[in-house]
Amino acid sequence: MFAAHAARTDSADPLSALEISDIVPASTPAEWVSVRMKAASLNHHDVWSLRGVGLSPERLPMVLGCDGVGETDDGRMVVLHTVIASPGWTGDETLDPKRSLLSEVYPGTLAEYVRIPAANLVPLPEGLAVEHAACVSTGWLTAYRMLFVQAGVKPGDSVLVQGAGGGVATAAVQLGSAAGLRMFVTSRDEERGRRAVELGAEDAFGSGERLPRRVDAVLETVGAATWSHSVKSLRPGGTIVIAGATSGDAPDKAELTRIFFQQMRIQGSTMGTRSELEALLSFMASRRIEPVIDSVRPLSEARGAFERMIDGDLFGKLVLTM
């Protein structure tokens, strides 16, 4: 099977660990179903895997990729829900302490075929392009859960998104504006802020810049570098939703006094459930929301996509077609 996979790991030079070639994938449970992949997209998770984060040597080689759309043996077009619950788990799969993502324990989506539990397949909605649907199972689902499950906001409320241009941040701006939320962003790059406004943000601010007024919720994926600004930008009783810490998880100041005195809520969030993915896809189809795509290229040219992601000079998703 032709696939983009981690043949080894290299923390200093992740691209050297990537191979795009035929591979015999690791075994999967017999009751899982096969899906012929049509398109998939990259995430920073794939680069971290090449660096060896969360991918132990005994699992190598490992097919990379979390997001994707494919066709089942009976001809159904489906979107893959990448959160794999442990055997026997019931309820919210994101709370399963033994959960994994495709490409961590079992082979991922950057391949001609993938095997996955039948319960993890979501029908591709009418009118949603394959390339767009291939972008949503990780970053977009994370943004959807942060906004509509964890933040407790309603149409007309204001939301600050830290770090315009990132995958989750871009998705949050598009989803929030389509739902009638007042979306604001911060960015170190003026051009990225401008593009976020084009996508639906009401305004963009420089990193750490004081907002005209405090917001009802903050979506935080940057971490230490923006934490104090997030707390200071939130109204009393508001909610900060945390789904990442790309700049580190140890801010210089925890802001505990401000948090308890102003009765702020701090809510963690990780990925999303299958039912939330189904709701997200339905919402996107009905509102005609199209994820921003940086480029589309065939799987055989995956190395160029990984190079672009590692360089960091992109705005939108990197999509690979099979």
Rank of each mutant, 00 (worst) to 15 (best):
A3E: 08
A4K: 01
H5R: 13
D10T: 01
P14G: 06
A17M: 09
I23C: 03
P25F: 02
A26P: 06
S27C: 11
A30P: 00
E31S: 14
W32G: 07
V33A: 05
V35C: 07
K38Q: 15
K38R: 14
A39V: 09
A40T: 10
L42H: 02
L42V: 07
N43A: 12
H44Q: 07
H45A: 10
D46P: 01
P57R: 08
V63C: 04
G70F: 01
M77K: 05
T82F: 01
W89G: 05
W89T: 11
T90H: 06
D92Q: 01
E93A: 13
T94K: 11
P97G: 05
R99K: 15
R99N: 14
E104Y: 04
V105E: 15
Y106W: 10
P107G: 04
P107D: 09
L110R: 02
I116D: 09
A119R: 15
N120R: 06
V122W: 13
P123S: 12
E131P: 04
S137M: 06
S137W: 06
W140A: 08
F148Y: 02
K154F: 06
Q162D: 13
G163P: 15
G165R: 12
G166K: 14
A172F: 03
V173S: 08
G180I: 13
F205K: 00
G208Y: 04
R210T: 14
R210Q: 11
L211I: 08
R214I: 01
R214F: 07
V215G: 11
D216C: 02
V218S: 11
L219E: 02
L219S: 03
E220Y: 03
T221P: 14
V222K: 00
A224E: 13
W227D: 10
S228W: 03
H229S: 11
S230Q: 08
V231Y: 07
T239P: 00
V241Q: 07
I242A: 13
A243N: 12
A245N: 05
T246F: 14
G248K: 05
P251G: 05
E255L: 06
T257H: 08
T257I: 13
T257R: 13
I259T: 15
F260I: 15
F260Y: 15
F261C: 14
Q262F: 09
M264L: 15
M264I: 05
Q267D: 00
L277A: 08
E278M: 02
E278I: 01
S282W: 04
F283T: 05
M284W: 10
S286W: 03
E290P: 00
E290Q: 07
V296R: 12
P298N: 05
P298S: 02
L299A: 04
E301Q: 12
G304W: 01
F306C: 01
R308Y: 00
T321S: 02
M322L: 07
